[in-house]
Design a protein around this nucleic acid. Sequence first.
DNA 1: GCTCTGACTAAGCGCTTGCTTACTCTGACG
DNA 2: CGTCAGAGTAAGCAAGCGCTTAGTCAGAGC
Lengths: 196, 196
Amino acid sequence: MTAARQPSIPDARQRLVEAAVASFAARGFHGTTTRDIAAGAGMSPAALYVHHRSKEELLHLISREGHLRTLALVQAAVAEHDDPVAQLTRLVEDFVRHHALTHTTARVINYEMAALSAEHLAEIQELRRRIDAVVRDVIERGVAAGVLATPDPAMTATALLSLGIDVARWYRDGAGWTPDQVAEHYRDLALRMAGA
Amino acid sequence: MTAARQPSIPDARQRLVEAAVASFAARGFHGTTTRDIAAGAGMSPAALYVHHRSKEELLHLISREGHLRTLALVQAAVAEHDDPVAQLTRLVEDFVRHHALTHTTARVINYEMAALSAEHLAEIQELRRRIDAVVRDVIERGVAAGVLATPDPAMTATALLSLGIDVARWYRDGAGWTPDQVAEHYRDLALRMAGA
DNA sequence: GCTCTGACTAAGCGCTTGCTTACTCTGACG
DNA sequence: CGTCAGAGTAAGCAAGCGCTTAGTCAGAGC
């Protein structure tokens, strides 16, 4: 009973999520119709409501999974090393590469937040605070240990996150730089910014 | 005839523009209705069409004026000095302060571009290329003169512009930092990034 | 072979959308 | 005082919106 629906349901459900990501990224949440999403998944308009409660719930699903993945990414970067400089190096490189690689999803989760319901928005903002705290903590520990130097660690943390997030806005596939090239250059910029 | 309409027309027309900026920034272009805009300007829904051709034309007007102002800002910063380091210092400080001060308008012109018509989008992208060229040129001249040092001036220019633009996304009035504080800190970050 | 479950859809409901039409009103001009 | 231009509006149209209803159909279980 529970095993029998595995091959069928997740596939269609996931196809709808992927079509929603593509549409939301291209035209925004309010510029996307439920018919766009269903057509993108090769289904009739009503099929969306077989697998998801509403258009907003789709956005929430995309947003929550994306933020959880980003939180896991920054936590993993910090867990790998003890030295704040090594942690920051790894964190920025992974964060930037991730935003270049998944720029379509990243665009949705960072620029369509205003379309979330009040409760869903609050949940997402809590995840963002936790991501923010990890980055700020790395810089504060680095400054305390004397291996980093910046007059305002909180603002420098904001700038580093901002720099990484905004990659999702301007990055284009196959136009100039690869995700690895951007990640490496940004890693060096970040180390300079933090006074390593 | 031409002088007589001065006190009346521009006022109502401008009020509609300001209401559109507020609505577009809060809910996005597609999330804003023409009734929202008209109500924000204290008028009936039909009044919008007395002063503007369409909702999209309002966005175009806001976008063009905003980009022209930003272009003028970066050109003025470069015109003030001969030294690339002094030019970059002034440019980043003014650019960032401007994006913090006018974050509502800046949010619209940077994050609602996809809602423009094909022709209007092309016009705006040309303005953005010119803004980009000014910043890239400053860094390239600085590197050539040996007063700046970065392995990829074009990517560093992209990062600096990105950092300034993204201020419009996260900056909140009266929450932590003043526009001047952000401008000063970001100026110092920029000089480190560019290897001054 | 019959039943039942669940993925999927054709049709469409009630509402909102961007924009228009046909009108009123005010105030400047001769 | 009559005319006329232009700011503004009440009412509404056609189209599109998110979502629902009532049903079809394929396959698994007995």
